[in-house]
């Protein structure tokens, strides 16, 4: 049995009268890719925002490597080794690639100056270039280029490389292939496999079930704020998963049609 990295127990979160998370529990183990599936509004983004410290949960417990933690800010989530690539763009378009890669964790000189410390521009550029090379964005992206000049896929790759660079234990991707072209999508899926190979745990939210069967080890399905099913990819098939997501028993329907 692989070691448990992240465990969520009975998470609850409401927005006014909307109960976005009712009683969500799940476990993520070392080096596995778990796909989180569910219809729009099922609560997937809410779940991962709670884990990554975007907002506090109402009730429930979060354990990282078996230790109970409270995540009150995005900073705390990052310090616990949880890196998230949010559905809405997670880059600042007016900043360079290098400045985005190190946003919030800038290399500086004269550290005692606090927020007034000067950026170590040479280190920033070198580290960014090295990282771009390492993650195999071959298309010769200039670390000083503004993110606003990049394509959607390039931006996604930057966001993913950023998550990888700090050796995060858990990487969360919220619909990372939305609005991407075919080639860019394959790039993202390749990243996911590389991350698993490098020992990271990945929580992947997507609407594309084919992608799930290509990269995931396990599937967790959410419906109306609850986790309604959990299966290993090896033990299930496309139709079953689709019916779990919609709540309709598709495979039974199909059998009857035959």
């Amino acid at each position: 049995m692989m070691q448990e990295v992240l465990r969520l127990q009975n998470l609850q979160k409401s927005f006014g009268s909307v109960r976005a998370l009712k009683n969500a529990s799940l476990t993520l183990r070392e080096g596995e890719v778990v796909a989180l599936l569910g219809d729009n509004g099922a609560g997937k983004s809410t779940l991962i925002k709670a884990i990554s410290g975007v907002f506090p949960i109402d009730r429930g417990d979060i354990y990282v490597r078996g230790e109970k933690v409270s995540i009150r800010s995005t900073r705390e989530a990052m310090d616990l080794g949880i890196e998230t690539i949010h559905q809405d763009t997670s880059l600042a378009p007016d900043l360079s690639i290098a400045r985005n890669l190190f946003l919030g964790r800038e290399p500086v000189n004269l550290k005692w100056l606090g927020v007034f410390a000067p950026l170590d521009l040479a280190e920033l550029r070198d580290a960014a270039s090295a990282l771009l090379k390492r993650v195999g964005i071959s298309k010769k992206l200039d670390a000083d280029a503004l993110v606003s000049t990049l394509s959607g896929g390039e931006r996604q790759s930057i966001a993913i490389s950023r998550a990888m660079q700090f050796a995060a234990k858990v990487i969360i991707l919220d619909e990372p292939t939305n609005n991407l072209g075919v080639e860019e999508t394959h790039g993202v899926l390749r990243f996911v496999k590389e991350m698993r190979a490098a020992g990271h745990s990945v929580l992947l939210i997507t609407h594309n079930i084919h992608h799930v069967f290509e990269v995931a080890d396990r599937i967790i399905v959410m419906r109306r704020g609850e986790i309604v099913a959990e299966q290993t990819v090896a033990d299930t098939d496309l139709l079953t998963v689709e019916s779990l997501i919609t709540g309709a028993d598709l495979s039974a329907l199909m059998k009857r049609a035959q």
Binding site: S73, M78, L91, P93, G104, R105
Partner: peptide, 9 residues
């Protein structure tokens, strides 16, 4: 992009 900045702490 305020949300992106907040997400980076």
């Amino acid at each position: 992009n305020r949300n992106a900045a907040v997400a980076r702490g």
